[in-house]
């Protein structure tokens, strides 16, 4: 059990470092943006020297860079990201109302993607070499290659403009109407993300089907569903740990899809704030989304570690594996530390 705890600590430390790095990059954006940061923070208001001085004062712009970063992180921990340049309202209050619709969109797409992606991934792997595998593999190839805004525009044209089955923009009132409005954008996101999951599932599962233990199970007439369960269990680690990638794809895609369907969500707000150079809003949204992605990766990594008994004991076992393989020229000791690290990825 201590080993699990050790891993959790290690992974959480990695998570905190990632978030700090991200925060640093995102914070630096204000300074990387061309022009005087104070001026950027004034926005469209009339610029007077007094106003600039006040801004410098309140934001501490004359402090050393890292002191400012420290203050910013301190504020961020208390969810204080300053005021929006466009509206002057506190960033969190301004952004919050946009979050609900994005949350719904992402949740619907995520559920659909996971269900469809894993289902078709398994079907495709099971029927490899057959027609159904070809069809699924090709559709998922298009799904992973096609940018979501292009797919979005296509379905918008066909199903909303041409056939008029779905609304062109907006989010609708009430549950059913909302679902109806979100159907097309969710479908676009699902198409892209489930394609990715199909690919991951398929390529994780096929090697399992060719392994010796599969043949040995077949040689004993173990029921087919049990054989498949074993294969899926063995393939689950790479699928589970791809969750970070999946979520990153999903959130990146949301920005574009919301913009195609004019959905007033976080993505759309982020895109428009980027063009308006509303830096505090951009910082807040970017950090929030990145936080979610990093947290999700950390959680699934920990889950995968707990599920997999071999990784649970990996550390303890390292010495024993070493003892067994030391004299095996295929595993020279020099590469052992590398292999154990790299083997997880």
């Amino acid at each position: 059990m201590t080993d699990v705890l050790k891993y959790i600590c290690k992974r959480l430390a990695e998570f905190i470092v990632s978030i700090l790095c991200l925060a640093f990059v995102i914070f630096s954006l204000l300074y990387l943006a061309p022009g005087d940061p104070a001026r950027s923070l004034v926005g469209t208001k009339q610029v007077t020297p007094e106003l600039l001085a006040t801004i410098r004062e309140t934001y501490g712009l004359d402090d050393p860079f890292f002191v400012q970063f420290g203050h910013w992180v301190q504020g961020a921990v208390h969810l204080d990201f300053g005021n929006s340049i466009r509206t002057g309202a506190p960033v969190t209050a301004y952004v919050a109302p946009h979050a609900a619709v994005t949350f719904e969109l992402v949740l619907i797409s995520l559920i659909c993607s996971v269900v469809l992606g894993i289902f078709f991934g398994v079907v495709s792997a099971k029927g490899r070499g057959k027609l159904r595998d070809d069809v699924i593999a090709n559709v998922s190839l298009v799904g992973t290659s096609a940018p979501s805004f292009a797919v979005g525009l296509f379905v918008l044209y066909v199903f909303a403009l041409k056939f008029g089955w779905f609304p062109i923009y907006g989010v609708g009132e009430g549950f059913v109407d909302r679902l109806w409005h979100l159907a097309l954008p969710a479908a676009c996101l699902t198409f892209a993300v489930s394609a990715l999951l199909i690919k991951i599932t398929r390529s994780a599962l096929i090697p399992e089907m060719e392994k010796d233990y599969t043949m040995f199970m077949r040689a004993r007439s173990v029921p087919t569903h049990e054989v498949q369960a074993a294969q899926i269990r063995n393939a689950s680690a790479p699928i589970l740990t791809s969750a970070g990638l999946v979520l990153a794809n999903l959130l990146g895609g949301t920005v574009l899809v919301e913009s195609v369907f004019s959905i007033p969500g976080l993505g759309n707000l982020l895109a428009s704030s980027v063009t308006f150079h509303d830096v505090p809003v951009v910082q807040f949204i970017a950090l929030t989304l990145a936080f979610i992605v990093c947290l999700a990766s950390a959680i699934v990594d920990i889950l995968a570690y707990i599920i997999d008994p071999t990784s649970r004991r990996r550390r303890m076992l390292r010495s024993r594996v070493a003892a067994e393989n030391w004299d095996d020229p295929a595993n020279p000791p020099a590469s052992l530390p590398n292999n154990t690290e790299g083997g997880v990825s």
């Binding site: 794809n249 959130l251 951009v282």
Partner: peptide, 13 residues
């Protein structure tokens, strides 16, 4: 890190 998201933010700002 979410690649596309960061690219949008960084390139935009």
């Amino acid at each position: 890190m979410p690649t596309l998201l960061l690219a949008i933010v960084a390139a935009g700002i």
